[in-house]
Computed example of a mutant assay.
Amino acid sequence: MRQRPRRSLVVPALLCALVALGGPPTLSQGADGSEGPEASAEVARLFEEASAATQHYEEGRRAAALQKTKAQKMERLLERERREIAALHNDLGRIARAQYRNGGDIPLTAQMLLADDPEELMHGQRAVWQADLALNNAVDKSRRAEKKLEEGQRRATAAWHSLEKSNGRLASLKQSIASKLEEAQWKLQGEADRSVAAGQCRGAVRLEQPEFRVTSAWVPPVETYELSAGFDSAGERWAHRHTGQDFAVGIGTPVRAAGAGRVVSVSCGGGFGVEVVVRHPGGYYTQYAHLAAVAVDQGEKVRAGQWLGQSGTTGNSTGPHLHFEVRLTPYLGSGVDPVAWFAERGVRL
């Protein structure tokens, strides 16, 4: 899957402008006389919320993983410190046992009187005392280190569990938004299907476009996608061969102009369902089909990356996707391979 940097959806007012090919648009209005952009606007808003929720969830998941790793590292250090303390205790025990074997319960004064070399005895005793002191200091130091490690491990574990709990809430929020988005997507699709069935196109609802920073004259028609059916491939849904490149995306995904040009047609009937065709300088045309909504009018100039509408599954379509064509004329049958065409212009799909 090709991943593109996702820009935020600046406004949630997004809906369909569908103009009959070769003639003026026939507007389909809701029962209240409005053109009903609510479903499209809700999809755009929920796409933004879903993107933000996913970002927060992923940030929380990564933070929790880091804290878990830190807690596990602290646990390993703590276990090593405990082993070192146990080893020191063993050394101290060996010294104590050696002292008992050498002198037993006999007082030091008596040991000196009985010793063949009292000075050597005192020297040995001082060495034992020094060893005792060093071991006691080492044990105290290790215990302080152990206490510090225990506190660090406790904090790291608490932070990890707190992040896990927070991430659980984020996951629930993410799922809730996803459910609402799915409902809004199919509501939008239902409106588009009714428009296509009635042969009436809804008028354009103007969008406050997101801020584009396109550095290339050409861009893929969607930002995040997975390629599905390719150009010239066989399929039972097509009378001959597949005439374009399909991009697997969800209903309501913003569809953008592949390059600068002028909209030559916006229509809502036939096998392609709701579609837009754009003429580009140099003689090429691009087609965007199976849409759920559009946001441009026939004759309108567009720039590379500008939203043309929202993807859907209108017309002869088995599921949500964008059908995209590059043509030598505005008409079906003059298509060229979009992947190769983009590659010639420095864009890899």
Score class of each variant (00 low, 15 high):
E119W: 03
R144S: 12
A138H: 03
R80H: 14
A257I: 07
L227V: 13
C16A: 09
T26L: 04
G168Y: 10
S166W: 14
T318G: 13
R101Y: 13
P330D: 08
V139Y: 08
P118E: 08
L349D: 04
Q3V: 14
I251G: 00
Q175K: 15
K165R: 15
R202Y: 00
A127F: 05
T54P: 05
G333P: 11
N102C: 12
N90K: 12
E48V: 06
A52G: 09
A248L: 15
A41G: 15
T286W: 07
R62C: 07
P210V: 04
A110R: 15
L15V: 06
A52R: 13
A204E: 01
P25M: 10
V222N: 04
P25Q: 10
E75G: 11
Q310K: 03
C16W: 00
G312V: 07
P220I: 12
A156R: 02
R237M: 11
P24E: 14
Y285T: 10
V277Q: 01
R279K: 09
K141R: 11
S179R: 14
A260F: 02
L27D: 03
H161L: 15
Q111N: 11
G60D: 08
K68N: 11
G252A: 10
K141V: 07
A293E: 00
G60Y: 09
A159H: 12
S267L: 02
A292E: 06
E79Q: 13
P5I: 10
H290S: 04
V43L: 06
A145W: 05
V43R: 03
R241S: 08
A115T: 04
R348I: 10
K148E: 13
T69W: 09
R155T: 14
V10Y: 04
R97D: 10
G259K: 01
F342R: 11
T318C: 04
V347L: 09
R126C: 00
E84H: 10
A134W: 12
G93A: 09
V219D: 07
Q175E: 14
G271C: 06
K301L: 03
K301E: 06
V196W: 01
E164K: 15
A86P: 03
V266P: 02
G235D: 11
N167E: 10
V19R: 07
E208D: 13
S166D: 15
L291V: 08
S40P: 05
V196A: 02
H242W: 08
V264Y: 03
A13M: 08
R169L: 13
F272M: 09
G203S: 05
L328Y: 01
V263Q: 00
D132R: 07
L108M: 12
A138E: 07
V339H: 08
A134K: 14
A138P: 01
G23Q: 15
A293L: 02
V274A: 02
A292T: 06
E300K: 01
L66E: 06
Q111W: 09
A217W: 07
H242V: 05
M112H: 08
G235Y: 09
G259Y: 01
I106D: 14
A63V: 10
G273P: 01
V264A: 06
S40I: 00
S162R: 11
E183L: 06
C201P: 07
V43W: 06
A260K: 13
A39R: 08
G312I: 02
F272T: 11
